[in-house]
Structure formats: C-alpha cells, structure tokens
C-alpha cells in the first residue's frame, strides 16, 4: 500500500513531538525511521497506526484520506517494542486473536483459523510452539510471535516500533534477516522505528532520518551514507 504523509504535526500540550512533516512511502517498501530518542519517530509510527491522532495534517493510504480512520479500521499490523503479547493466552490464541475478534460475519471458520496460524508459525520458523505461553518463550521467539500475530489480520501495512530493541546482538542479526524475508514474502509496505543506524542501513530500502520532530533526510542507505544532507545526519551516521 502506498502511504502518503501530508504535513502531519503533533503536539502533546505544550511540547511539540512532530513539526509538520511530509513523506511519501512507495508501496511495498521497507522503510526505517531512524533517529535519536525524542526525534518523533515513534509518534509518527503511532499516527500511521491510528494509535495517535495528529494535531494537523493528513494521512493518505493509496490516495484516500485516512486521517480519521480508527485503529481497528486501519488494519495496520503493529509490533510493539514490548511485544505486548497476551500473556494469559497461548501462542496459538495470541496469533488467532485478530481473526477471532472479527465480527461474526467476517470471522473465518475454526479450521481456517487453525490453518492460517499454522502457516504463520511456519513463516516465522517456529512450528510446534502453539501451546506455549509467552512467558515460556525466549525474547527472540516472542518478537516473532508478535510479528505473526500482526500478520494474521492480513494487514495493509506492517509497523514495527524498535522491533529489535530488547534483544541481544546475535538474535538481533538473525531477526533482521527474518524481517527482510517476511517482508519479501508478503510484499507488505513495512515501516520500522530504530535508533540504530546499522540496523537501518542494513535492512531498509529507504531510510528516513529524523531529529527534533523533523525529517532531516530521506534516501536510500548508500545515498545517506555518501551524501548526508545536514550536519546532523553526518554526525548521526558516523557516530
């Protein structure tokens, strides 16, 4: 899905989280929102997911103004930094949640839900953990279950908030790879937030460097590396 961000601004009371920013994300891209903490990257992601409403500006999905769409209507697969798995549910129930939560008319039959969950578990390469509870999983496994849960609703886009933030270096590398593969397999427009420039550069097709609620530069990783647009970008990239 093509996403267009048109002069989106957000403030919480007196503090400005986002200056008016504009950005066009081509359909099927894998995009990194890169910046230090407080740069507004998570706020922008949450606005796209419908978890936050912008103070001004518009969001367009495939050209249609979607600013007022509720979270539920957006069908954005969202992976939280804490993963936010339902700890009183098994892995199966977690992944099936979005399908079971649909109104009766749109809800797939039980067997179809089971089939889809099995398929997603294959996709994240964790078959056979259906009956486990989140607390019985390792950090990396939890992250992948959260990803599968987000994919189960057949989202129109995939949004990830610091998806590798809580993992150790080795698992992080593996999962980067996993995300790339899942992105390529599903073809979903995917946006992830990170403060780690290596992660952004290695994984993304398009990197959006942010600072102080502004977009500093948008470009392919090598463009940003070779031609930093502002002193901030140069400093942040080489840091």
């Amino acid at each position: 899905m093509h996403i267009e961000i048109d002069e989106i601004a957000k403030s919480f009371g007196d503090t400005t989280a986002l200056q008016p920013v504009s950005l066009a994300i081509p359909s099927g891209a894998l995009v990194a929102l890169l910046g230090p903490s407080g740069s507004g990257k998570t706020t922008l992601l949450r606005i796209l997911g419908g978890l936050e409403y912008p103070t001004s500006g518009r969001v367009l999905f495939d050209g249609a103004d979607s600013t007022g769409l509720s979270v539920q209507q957006r069908r954005a697969g969202f992976v939280f930094q804490s993963y936010a798995l339902f700890r009183h549910m098994t892995v199966f129930e977690n992944i099936a949640y979005g399908l079971k939560a649909r109104p009766r008319k749109l809800r797939p039959p039980r067997a179809e839900i089971a089939r889809r969950v099995a398929k997603l578990l294959d996709l994240i390469q964790l078959p056979g953990i259906t009956d486990r509870y989140p607390t019985q999983l390792s950090g990396g496994q939890r992250q992948r279950v959260a990803l599968a849960r987000a994919l189960a609703i057949e989202p129109r886009m995939l949004l990830l908030d610091e998806p590798f933030g809580a993992l150790d270096a080795k698992v992080r590398k593996e999962l980067r790879h996993g995300l790339r593969e899942i992105h390529d397999a599903t073809g979903l427009t995917t946006i992830f937030v990170t403060h780690d420039q290596d992660e952004a550069m290695e994984l993304a097709d398009l990197v959006v460097v942010m600072s102080m609620g502004r977009i500093e530069q948008v470009g392919r990783p090598q463009d940003i590396r070779e031609r930093p647009a502002t002193p901030f970008v140069r400093e942040f990239i080489t840091a």
């Binding site: 419908g50 069908r75 804490s82 936010a84 339902f86 939560a101």
Partner: peptide
C-alpha cells in the same frame, strides 16, 4: 496492566 496490551488488541481489530 500495560497500555500497549490494550493498544495491541485494538490494532488487531478488536472492539
């Protein structure tokens, strides 16, 4: 109870 758990439920389409 973590707010994100409720938000996760909403992003999955739950009322």
């Amino acid at each position: 109870i973590d707010r994100e758990v409720e938000e996760a439920s909403a992003t999955l389409g739950a009322s």
